[in-house]
Computed example of a mutant assay.
Amino acid sequence: MTNNSSEIPASSAPKKENAFLNIALNIVIPTVILMKFSGPDDLGPQLGVIVALAFPIGYGVMDYFRAKKINFFSALGVLSILLTGGITLLELDPKYIAIKEATIPALFGLATLISLKTRYPLVKTFLFNDNVMQTKKVHDALAKSANEPQFERCLINASYMIASSFALSSVLNYALAKWVLVSAPGTEEFNAELGKMTALSLPVITLPAMAVLIFALFYLFRQITKLTGLSLEEVFVDPEEHKKR
C-alpha cells in the first residue's frame, strides 16, 4: 500500500494568492464595467456600480476561504468597497468618497504608531515575522552581541517609515478622489469617473506608497545584518524550508 502521508500537508496548505487574479478582480474588471458598461443601454449607473463592486467583494470572500481565517486588511478593504458602493447608490456628495479614501490608510498609519506602545508592534507583522525572516536566529545573534536595544530603535524607525507610507497614501487618495470625482452620483459620468479613479489608484497611490515601504524593508534588513553580523542568506527564511513547516 502506498503511503500518502507526506502528501497531506501539501494538499491541506492554503494556496498562495494569485497576483494577476487580484489585480483583475480588484482593478481591471471593475474599471471596465464602470467606464464601458454603465450607460443606459448597458447595465445603467446603479446596476453598473453593483456589478463592478461585486468582483472585489467576491475576491475578499474568496480570500477568506483560501486563507481559512479573516485577514484584517482584506476585511477593511471589503468594508471600504461597501462604503463606496453605499455612498454611490445613495447618491451622496462625492466628497464623502474622498474622505473615506483618505480615512482608511490614515487609520492604518495611526494603528502602526499606536502599536508601538503595545507588545505587538505592527512592524513585526509587516516586516519582521517568521514567514520572512528567521527571527529566532536574529534574536539569538542580537543577544550575543548585546545589540537588542539598538534593534528595538530600528523597529521604531521602521514603524515611522511604514506610518509615513500610509500617510502618503491617505493624502494621494484624497487628492485623486477630489480631482477625478466631479459629476453627480447616480450618473453614467460619475461611474466612468469612479472607474478612472480605480484605474489610477495603482500608479498614483499604490506605487509611491510601496516605494516607501520597500525603503523601510531595506533599512531594516541592512540594520539587522549590521547588528547581528549575519548575512542576508542567513536572515531570510528558505522558501523550501518554509513549505515544510
Rank of each mutant, 00 (worst) to 15 (best):
residue 157 N to R: 10
residue 190 F to W: 04
residue 64 Y to F: 12
residue 184 A to Q: 12
residue 12 S to K: 15
residue 166 F to W: 07
residue 159 S to K: 08
residue 114 I to E: 02
residue 202 L to A: 12
residue 70 I to D: 04
residue 57 I to D: 01
residue 27 I to Q: 11
residue 35 M to F: 03
residue 193 E to L: 00
residue 30 P to E: 08
residue 185 P to R: 02
residue 202 L to C: 09
residue 121 P to G: 13
residue 103 T to W: 06
residue 165 S to T: 07
residue 94 P to R: 00
residue 214 I to S: 00
residue 1 M to N: 14
residue 73 F to V: 15
residue 101 E to F: 02
residue 17 E to W: 04
residue 68 K to V: 09
residue 125 T to Y: 11
residue 199 A to D: 05
residue 117 K to W: 05
residue 8 I to V: 15
residue 23 I to E: 11
residue 3 N to K: 14
residue 165 S to D: 10
residue 38 S to T: 08
residue 125 T to H: 10
residue 17 E to D: 10
residue 236 F to K: 07
residue 3 N to S: 13
residue 170 S to M: 05
residue 222 R to Q: 14
residue 18 N to M: 03
residue 112 T to H: 06
residue 11 S to Y: 13
residue 57 I to K: 03
residue 182 V to F: 02
residue 73 F to K: 10
residue 75 A to I: 10
residue 123 V to N: 11
residue 26 N to W: 06
residue 162 I to Q: 04
residue 186 G to C: 06
residue 128 F to R: 00
residue 84 T to R: 07
residue 14 P to K: 14
residue 9 P to D: 09
residue 43 L to W: 00
residue 243 K to E: 12
residue 61 V to G: 12
residue 157 N to L: 14
residue 47 L to C: 05
residue 110 L to Q: 07
residue 205 I to H: 05
residue 10 A to R: 11
residue 67 A to F: 08
residue 139 H to Y: 08
residue 107 L to A: 11
residue 117 K to P: 00
residue 161 M to G: 14
residue 224 I to D: 03
residue 166 F to P: 05
residue 180 V to L: 02
residue 122 L to M: 09
residue 229 G to N: 13
residue 139 H to M: 10
residue 231 S to H: 13
residue 71 N to K: 08
residue 113 L to Q: 01
residue 130 D to L: 03
residue 18 N to S: 13
residue 23 I to T: 14
residue 78 V to C: 07
residue 235 V to C: 15
residue 81 I to L: 13
residue 32 V to Q: 01
residue 19 A to I: 15
residue 183 S to Q: 06
residue 237 V to F: 00
residue 45 P to W: 03
residue 151 F to T: 00
residue 103 T to S: 12
residue 15 K to R: 15
residue 9 P to N: 14
residue 117 K to D: 03
residue 174 Y to R: 07
residue 49 V to A: 09
residue 1 M to R: 12
residue 39 G to L: 05
residue 129 N to H: 11
residue 199 A to F: 08
residue 141 A to K: 07
residue 75 A to G: 15
residue 104 I to P: 08
residue 115 S to D: 04
residue 8 I to F: 12
residue 57 I to G: 05
residue 116 L to N: 02
residue 145 S to K: 14
residue 90 L to D: 09
residue 5 S to I: 15
residue 59 Y to T: 07
residue 146 A to K: 04
residue 133 M to I: 09
residue 77 G to V: 09
residue 137 K to R: 13
residue 205 I to S: 07
residue 173 N to A: 12
residue 181 L to V: 03
residue 56 P to N: 14
residue 236 F to T: 07
